[in-house]
Write a protein that binds this DNA or RNA. Structure first.
Length: 801
DNA sequence: AGCACGCCGACT
DNA sequence: GTCGGCGTGCTC
């Protein structure tokens, strides 16, 4: 009798390992690794879902094995590759294996548990039982139930009058629709048509419809126009056609495929494609980093490489930051590869996501375009993985499992022996440094395809009284340029940099920001303490009322909302049509794409928005880009602040002058001499890279050091802090003198969900004991979880806040 | 997580 | 005596 190793859906440290279950004879040839099964787990009659990881001939368990209850899937939902990946991922991200297995599948395949109360047979007629069940044979236990009711349930259960039935539900369901099809061929249909009675007009029409659409069958009933259901029924009775059930694919986001023919490549593009294709042809898992300026034609390189992979019989995976942000990219891929493309992104409903997943799983789609989680797409025989805008922080998931899609992609590439292509105009420092060391192959694309010059960038020093408008945030120069662009019938994009908004202090007189004396990051305002605090080392100081640098009283929290700017624009340029895009206006599904389309159709003159307008949008009529406040990202308390600012400014500048009109960019800032702003204005990534690497080296940050952030939380602040110190002591024991330990410090939103959060940061180069120590710490803290402690470990955090 | 077991104080 | 509350330990 064979035995299955099953990882059960009980996400705790103690159950984070496979449990053995006997495979009953009836399921002997059915159960295979990668399948989901239902098993009894624990003392009671609790049923849970589990994943079969492995099948053995013998058991190593000394006790009596329980049998597998039933299988949830007829075929395995995870391939051996994915099972292996989940183990690696669990280890890498310090997460439960079950969480990793579940994140690889569409959410509808996550088990839903229900509990029902049923009377024990002898007590079916018991008065208390009858009143509890209200005369029904069973009652579902819901979280909304009143405490009294739950108490009564407990009471009756202790008396053994009722029992609890567990139901494990699979939510995955495909939409079924009725469709018509026929087994007759054209000739037979023509014969049938001739045999019709002359007054059978509707039947005549129907047969014609069938003849015309023979190659498209089966066709859904709803799509047959002008023919009634009764007509179809009659035809079915006469053997003309058959009614079948088809699984209807729910319609994913509105994609308007952009038909582009294969373009002729420039020298740079050709060289890039050749290098990538060589790896595809020879099944080498090389990693390429394409550092290409905006407009250098990276997309065409991607498309032609995908084409090569397909031609070689492989599939291809392409990751983009967040699809709803780059509809134009999706449109181009679907335009080139049509039905072969599956699209996965956060805008899909759970059902839609499941449908797309199914299309990939059964091989209908060989090209997958998607956001972060698409890296787990069940593609077979991958020939190429592309990560566009590889520097984007959204590739890292910020809750468990905290994986980075780039690392998962590299892992899968090794399994599939295929290349990975990372593309960006502003690569992350980590990737660029790896390319420097020769770990990645660096490909430069310095020329723009259309040979247009880069936009002319102007930096406005807002400390200068002439530039800072008397009222409001829009400098006279930007006002003037907006006016003239609109007058010429051109469009403009205005970016309001909102991240880090209002949590730091800046002097409007001299541009001074309050920084930590030890860590070289901005101090952040803590409302509950009414103090300025450093997130790295915990240093704090009082909130200043005058600028320590120039003694001006104009120091304050910095930040304006998009609505405010919209107001100002309306006042200054009453004739301009302003379209605002921010979290408020894009809340509804699809509204994002609508705004983009409206702007593309020139239904507005100015597109005003936050970060989200900076990415991947391509509007030929935009000639002017204005950045209201370039500094906010610079001042957030994160060592990546300069990198983020540089990336944002470079990207948004690239939005100006994409077609044959020259572009103009105006950047308003209080820090005109900062290298991130200066280099962005020149689109000089390489210089920025050198500068930033130097500073990272000086202050021991990524990529010179690895960082791991561990945070603990508790309802009681004292307890949380105590745990923080305990954590630090534990780490100190295990680490060498070379490692740097910071904290414990409170986090900015130190009281989400009524809990206090403290974090410890480890910076290190080589600490072989760290991994195991963290696992031990996790284990110890998990045991305390009932006492209200929670812990989170984030390897290479994207932001520290 | 969720369940049973077991120890302990409180109460019909 | 026994009911119910809570701490502890285990789940193939």
């Amino acid at each position: 009798m064979s035995v299955a190793e099953v990882v059960v859906d009980v996400p705790t440290m103690q159950t984070n390992r496979p449990f053995e279950y006997a495979i009953p004879n009836s399921l002997e040839d059915v159960v295979v690794p990668g399948m989901r099964v239902e098993v009894f787990f624990g003392r009671g009659k609790r049923k849970v879902q589990g994943f079969v990881m492995k099948i053995n001939e013998t058991s190593s368990f000394s006790g009596k094995l329980k049998p597998i209850n039933r299988v949830i899937d007829l075929r395995p939902v995870l391939t051996p590759e994915m099972l292996k990946l989940s183990s690696w991922l669990a280890d890498e991200t310090y997460s439960f294996e079950i969480s990793c297995l579940q994140t690889m599948l569409p959410s509808v395949m996550r088990a839903k548990y229900k509990q029902f109360i049923e009377p024990v047979e002898e007590f079916v007629d018991d008065q208390e039982v009858i009143s509890l069940l209200d005369g029904n044979p069973s009652l579902e236990i819901t979280p909304q139930m009143s405490d009294e009711k739950l108490q009564l349930i407990n009471h009756l259960r202790r008396q053994n009058k009722i029992k609890i039935e567990y139901v494990v539900e699979n939510q995955a369901r495909q939409l079924k629709r009725q469709a018509i099809t026929t087994e007759l061929n054209t000739i037979q249909l023509h014969e049938q048509k001739n045999n019709l009675r002359s007054n059978a007009k509707a039947q005549f029409k129907l047969i014609n419809f069938l003849i015309d659409n023979l190659d498209k069958l089966p066709i859904e009933m709803g799509e047959v126009e002008g023919i009634s259901r009764a007509t179809i029924k009659t035809a079915e009775k006469n053997g003309l056609l058959k009614i079948v059930e088809v699984t209807k694919r729910r319609k994913p986001i509105e994609i308007t495929p952009e038909q582009t023919t294969k373009l002729n490549l420039t020298e740079e593009q050709k060289s890039a494609v050749d290098q990538i294709n060589d790896s595809i042809d020879n099944s080498k898992s090389d990693t390429f980093l394409i550092e290409g300026v905006t407009g250098s034609g990276k997309t065409e390189v991607y498309l032609q490489s995908i084409e090569r992979a397909l031609k070689q019989g492989h599939s291809a995976l392409m990751l983009v930051p967040e699809i709803s942000l780059t509809p134009q990219m999706v449109n181009r891929v679907t335009g080139r590869f049509g039905d072969k493309v599956a699209v996965l992104h956060s805008g899909l409903s759970n059902g839609e996501r499941y449908d797309e997943w199914t299309r990939i799983e059964n091989g209908e789609a060989q090209v997958v375009v998607g956001a972060r989680s698409a890296v787990f797409a069940p593609l077979k025989d991958i020939g190429l993985i592309i990560i566009d805008e590889e520097h984007e922080a959204s590739y890292k998931q910020d809750d468990n499992p905290r994986y980075h899609a780039r690392n998962v992609a590299l892992w899968r590439a090794k399994q599939h022996k295929c290349p990975v292509v990372l593309g960006s105009a502003t690569p992350s420092l980590e990737s660029r440094a790896r390319a420097q060391k020769g770990v990645y192959h660096l490909i430069y694309m310095k020329k723009r395809v259309n040979e247009h010059p880069l936009p002319h960038v102007q930096i406005i020093d807002m400390r200068d009284a002439e530039n800072s408008a008397v009222k409001g945030d829009i400098s006279p120069l930007l006002q003037d340029n907006l006016y003239r662009a609109i007058k010429r019938g051109e469009q403009a994009i205005v970016l309001l940099n909102r991240r880090g908004y209002s949590s730091f202090m800046m002097c409007r007189e001299c541009g001074f920001t309050l920084k930590c004396p030890n860590c070289d990051v901005s101090l952040t305002y803590h409302k509950d303490l009414a103090k300025m605090k450093c997130h790295y080392c915990g240093h704090d100081e009082p909130v200043p009322s005058i600028c320590p640098n120039c003694k001006s009283k104009k120091i304050g929290f910095y930040g304006t909302g998009t609505q405010n700017i919209e107001h100002q624009l309306n006042e200054i340029l009453p004739q301009a049509r302003v379209l605002r895009m921010d979290v408020d206006t894009t809340h509804k599904k699809g509204s994002h794409a609508k705004i983009i389309k409206a702007f593309g159709d020139h239904k507005a003159d100015i597109l005003l928005g936050t970060q989200m307008i900076a990415k991947g949008l391509d509007f030929p009529n935009v000639t002017l880009v204005g950045v209201i406040n370039a500094d906010t990202t610079l001042s957030i308390a994160d060592y990546r602040a300069s990198e983020r600012t540089f990336q944002l400014l470079t990207q948004v500048s690239g939005r100006a002058g994409r077609a044959d009109k020259e572009g103009h960019v105006i950047i308003q800032t209080f820090n005109p001499d900062h290298y991130a702003i200066k280099d962005a204005s020149k689109q000089d990534y390489e210089n920025f890279y050198k500068q930033e690497m130097y500073l990272r080296h000086q202050s021991n940050y990524t990529p010179y050091y690895f960082t791991t952030l561990i945070s603990v939380a508790h309802k009681d602040e004292g307890q949380a802090l105590k745990q923080g110190y305990w954590l630090k002591r534990q780490l100190q024991e295990a680490l060498s003198d070379h490692a740097i330990l910071l904290g414990p410090t409170p986090t900015m939103i130190s009281r989400k969900q009524n809990k206090y959060y403290y974090q410890v940061i480890v910076k290190y180069k080589h600490e072989p004991k760290l991994h195991q120590k963290l696992l031990d710490i996790l284990n110890d803290t998990q045991a305390d979880t009932k006492k209200g402690f929670t812990i989170a470990i984030d390897n290479e955090p994207q932001h520290i806040d």
